[in-house]
Design a protein around this nucleic acid. Sequence first.
DNA 1: ATATAACGTCTTTTT
DNA 2: GACGTTATAT
Length: 676
Amino acid sequence: MWNNDQKKAIKHMEGPLLIVAGAGSGKTKVVTNRIAHLIDEGIPSTDILGLTFTNKAAKEMRDRVEELTKEDVFISTFHSLGAKILRESIYKIEYKTNFSIFDEEDSLRLLKSCFRSLKKEEKYLKYVKAKISQSKNNLISYENINKDSLISKKDFIFLEIYPFYQKKLKECNAVDFDDLLFLTALLLEKKELRETYQKRWSFILIDEYQDTNFSQYTMAKILSEKHKNIFVVGDPDQSIYSWRGARYENILEFDKDFKNCSIIKLEQNYRSSQNILLASNSLIEHNQNRYKKNLFSYLDEGEKVKIFIAEDEKLECDFVIKKILEQDKERAIFYRTNAQSRIFEDILIKKKIPYIIYGSISFYQRKEIKDILAFLNLIISDDDFISFSRTINLPKRGIGKTTLLKFLELKEKNNLSLFSLCQKILKEKNLIKITKKQKESFSEYLSLIFRLRDFYEKNKHIDEIILYFLKNSDYLDYLKEDPDTYEERKENIDELIKKAATFEGDLYKFFEEITLLTTNEVSEKKYSLKLMTIHNSKGLEFDEVFIVGMDEGLFPHENCKDEIEEERRLCYVGMTRAKKKLYLTCSLKRFLHGKERIARPSRFLKEISKKYVENLSEREIRNSFYVEDRVFHKTFGIGVVKRVYNTFYGDTYDVFFEEENQIRSLIAKYAKLEKY
DNA sequence: ATATAACGTCTTTTT
DNA sequence: GACGTTATAT
Ligand SMILES: Nc1ncnc2c1ncn2[C@@H]1O[C@H](COP(=O)(O)OP(=O)(O)OP(=O)(O)O)[C@@H](O)[C@H]1O
């Protein structure tokens, strides 16, 4: 059943191998089976390292390998691998090995407090955050920044904040997501460690290689430098993470890094019907910057790709739901942005159709969960300002921004740990200006933390610590203040307790797992309908796929105008997930910033070759104006489109201008008409 | 100095 | 339509 190229890849033993292959050609399947083959050939499973980009992909591969071989192979994300290496060796760069991992929210809070401490304008927060992340992804530490190119005001702020932020992270005994790669790569550059880890895994396999960024690339390169048994698979057309530093060039330059590598191409698609595959190919061919591929399928022709142009969002949604109700199948709805899931959720709940959402806010990012974890974190950490500032005012104790800032300044001056300072404040009088009430509740808070610590000394069962916390604090009462959400939050807390009760490992491990695990497999039951962003759909496949919200401006997204090819790749990824049926929908009106606005079909709909498409709506697939659209022209004023037709010059409109009371013919390319 | 209510603002995508 | 910021009351 394998084709020859697949066979060659699976049987490959030593030396570097690159597989470049299109969607649905069996890349992931080949990686999995090659691992099984290595084990069959007598390679110890502990010598093998498999790397993926999402926890879900890692778990899936682990499960499939276990099915095939009954062995437990270390398959993880780059980030989890980083966490593992850092736990063992981070002390070499003066961190403690029991560090905690800050998620996106925590690091943003910390960065914000850095801005406040250094009195910087917070409007640059986002810029600096991106800049720090970018630097770490490119393995540039704050000592090594090339200052010459940084001349703007926001860059000066970045220059000041980056080292400060890094120092504060260390003070909190924490690393952020980017550090998991950045610090790991730095560690691996140290000779003695490098040699240790190079011996640890003698066969390395990487899936979705087109999405490696520089730090991941460096990790992979160093780890396999000695034995050169590196096996990577990827598809440049599916590179969709350039915004977080991914370079698909890594795949094209693989043969430079690993001389004499073997290269295998897989060109047969085993997933999609002819129509779906050819439609997808016809779209991706619009990318200029790309190597041509010859991807084919022997599967049935199947149905044409269905395009539906709805008059408004509600009708778009109704269309999808109606199709879903027709029969029970393995289905998914994809969208460009998380916010788009809302309308669908509303209807699905109303119609009692079971569904599951991937991504967006994961279980562990919910407020109530993070609050409790922050309290627990204070048991084992003495200087985590983020957990402290998160919990100090829960429930409200009248300690806000200003007091916290003063607190921080005092801490800086006295060079004390957080809790030493707390005790000092309670003992000595006029250290800090606080009211009697504030002081009382502050003391209450501290005593809660110390009681938790005492309890932890005697009892390390995480579920029991949480129960003890709930019993001894007013946290639940605080949640009851919002009765609408209380029930749900309480249920989530119960879920957390359940998780804690069955968890094997200490509190540190518990935190690590929870921070790195963004998806909660808790609810992974047999839901046939799945909702997710297209980014989240990578690597998956479904019988029927709906890609919704295909409006110009939403997909391709307004903010990605200069990354149009990546948007197109994203669309390609989404389309190629479908096995049997593919629906692409858009709406002519869309709610944006609280107002309903006119929207137009995405250019991608137009770019797909008509041969493979069936339009289910009355409307033509056009991403310009329709008859009766109101438009604005800067000389002629406001008008109404009366006729749309094609001339030698392309799309042409007859527009009736109110002011002049006459019709003018305008050529789309030249007349700069705007929607009005 | 904090808590709350009203106001204005701008939305990508993830580990 | 969520979010953060600012004005106002406490
Ligand atoms: N030789 C084969 N015979 C039959 N089915 C196959 C064969 N190879 C792969 N497949 C099937 O094709 C589908 C796609 O495989 P897989 O997910 O591994 O592809 P992929 O290249 O990783 O896809 P993508 O890059 O689009 O995520 C799977 O359902 C797989 O079982």
